[in-house]
Nucleic acid binder design. Structure first.
Lengths: 355, 355
DNA sequence: GCCAAGTATGAAACCGTTTACATCGGGAGC
DNA sequence: GCTCCCGATGTAAACGGTTTCATACTTGGC
């Protein structure tokens, strides 16, 4: 394939001139420029990206590392990152499905020299080493970090207050025996949501330790199994808070299979507000987080960090988690699930209806 | 940051030796190796990816270009690509949301030198130029190509036969006045599905030109509007084939808002089988395509192409589109939408129930 | 007619690796 | 004791660009 030298030779100029034409840097004689461009087209010359980033130390690429790519949530995060990156003329180098620190380290190493910054959702503490090493070279933005890292920006959802609001809502509806299906152990989001659940109970003068805690792993199947387990329990809880919507879906299926009616027999609340939540039967009351917005915000922080260089401070941002009341919790004022019914009431943290 | 030279100097060896240690290429004295490794760790040395790929002409990265990143379908494709790439130790360089040929060209140019191959779903014919130019340098695999390109592998869904099966099923249920909500003009998938729709009618001795064709664009809102338009029509079609599930969702919402019952008043069939399809009210009969599998297959083809070099032939693969009968079409044998009911009947192209 | 300023271009260093080839000891074979 | 071979390592040339600095040639002002 043609290199800059081939073009220079064919056009009878030096490679410096060709480079200048392509970066329209300094003034180049228009005649020379057009001749070079013409030759370049004829030779099908395209600058080599690796060579460019080697000299300029710029790649116009953002690294993105995610723990795993299943579930709608992560897709949305990627969408948000992608969209905002494009707006800033950046491409994204994606590497996901990392289950342990070792894999993260390898992926991080492979990215080095190819990225101007790294947006990362770390699955576990073992990844912190990678973060530290990468951070010495390019800015790092953490998503929902388990541990804040000195010198890294981060964006996180208000998991705690979102969960608390959801459970408080159930309590307000009269429920006194509320169970929770948790996320995988060690997952920050899961832990924060559990903490919010317990706080809500405590705030209402109930004993958090008395509540049924069913272990889950954020997958639909875990929700189903949890549902089966719950039904065998006596006394049976009157409401369940599933730590994410995926498990709520499985739970609803288990309840339907057992002939239980939601919310009459048992109330259900989820977390995430995935696209199908409004279309479930009954429409799912859940806590809405803007996954796409998380990615968007992460890119914004990254752009700031890249601008300001390694001296940039470590901003911490929180994104709201908003309770969306639909029908699965039995609220009298719930939306229909098919028609928009946004209410401006309840202190601004509760929405009703479809979106 | 430390370079290979720093390590070499500190360890009292040449850069060649350091390089050899890191690529455990040729025999290196174990003692020397461990000393180099130790120094490298102390200096926090990581090889620079850009420099490596400049000399080796390998990047361990696959370019991925998609027209736009909205909707579950594309997320699934990316998931499939990502998973399979990781299995082969490749990362992916993502660039999406390209709406025109110009943007595609720029993105392609930015990728050059950073990728070992390109997986691309081209939005329009204007992108063909980019494909051609990229193809001269690295292998290209096309997804659902509008036009096959000489020397490129491709993977596509059987849009045509999938749509035909869906409409034939409606006809088998007794429907004689069937409408279609189409995808955006110029979209291959949309066109193929329309073609399948017309063929099914023709096969049944009906006049394709007499059918109602409502223009859509694959978005939920278009489905809603199409629903409104359909309800105003007289005589009103007894069944509707929406060219994708997103529009079917909107259509169901419009019908519900008008108090129509599905499938009693009107039957609905979609295309894609997105995750929420089974949870809609009623569960949506649709044509299932394995978007994740599409990405997976594309990577497999790419690996073959990279192995065999530019001489590699141009394989064309078709992935099946399978009709999944649920309740929205009014079939007597439909699944419940919540319990798995896979039937092995009907020539193997029809499944029933949830998945 | 000379100097300063400005424009267009070239020469060469550099970015951080890999790798072909050269070099250098030392032990084996005879 | 002389080759020959081999293992360990160094030298230096790529890879394909960008960029600093130098140079040659025009102009314009006085």
């Amino acid at each position: 394939m043609a290199t800059i030298r081939d073009v220079a030779r064919a056009a009878g100029v030096s490679i410096a001139t060709v480079s200048r034409v392509f970066n329209d840097h300094t003034l180049v004689n228009p005649e020379t420029a057009s001749r070079v461009l013409e030759i370049a087209t004829k030779l099908d010359y395209w600058p080599n990206g690796a060579a460019q980033s080697l000299t300029t130390r710029r790649t116009q690429t953002l690294g993105v590392m995610l723990p795993e790519l299943f579930g709608e949530f992560y897709s949305e995060v990627i969408r948000g990152i992608d969209r905002q990156s494009r707006a800033h003329d950046y491409q994204i180098l994606l590497s996901s499905s990392h289950s342990n620190g070792e894999e993260v380290l390898i992926a991080g190493r492979a990215m080095l020299g190819r990225i101007d910054g790294l947006i990362m959702m770390a699955p576990d503490e073992a990844s912190i080493e990678t973060v530290e090493r990468v951070r010495r070279r390019v800015p790092v933005v953490l998503l929902n970090p388990r541990i804040e890292v000195e010198g890294c920006c981060s964006v996180a959802f208000e998991n705690f207050s979102g969960a608390r609001a959801a459970v408080t809502h159930l309590i307000g509806l009269g429920h006194r025996d509320i169970a929770i299906i948790t996320g995988p152990p060690g997952n920050v989001d899961a832990e924060e949501r559990l903490r919010g659940f317990r706080r809500a109970l405590a705030d209402a003068g109930m004993d958090p330790d008395a509540a049924a805690v069913i272990p889950g792993d954020f997958r639909e199947s875990a929700g189903y199994e949890a549902g089966v387990a719950l039904l065998a329990r006596k006394p049976r809880p009157t409401a369940v808070f599933a730590a994410n919507d995926g498990m709520a879906v499985g739970l609803l299926a288990a309840l339907a299979a057992a002939g239980k009616r939601v919310p009459r027999d048992i109330a259900v609340v989820g977390f995430d507000d995935i696209a199908m939540a409004a279309y479930l039967n009954p429409p799912l009351t859940t806590v809405s987080v803007d996954a796409c917005g998380l990615g968007h915000r992460a890119v914004d922080l990254m752009m700031g960090a890249i601008e300001s260089g390694p001296t940039g401070g470590s901003l911490r941002q929180q994104l709201p988690a908003v309770l969306v009341v639909r029908q699965s919790c039995g609220s009298a004022t719930a939306g229909t699930g098919l028609l928009e019914q946004t209410a401006g009431s309840s202190g601004g943290t509760v929405r009703r209806g479809r979106k």
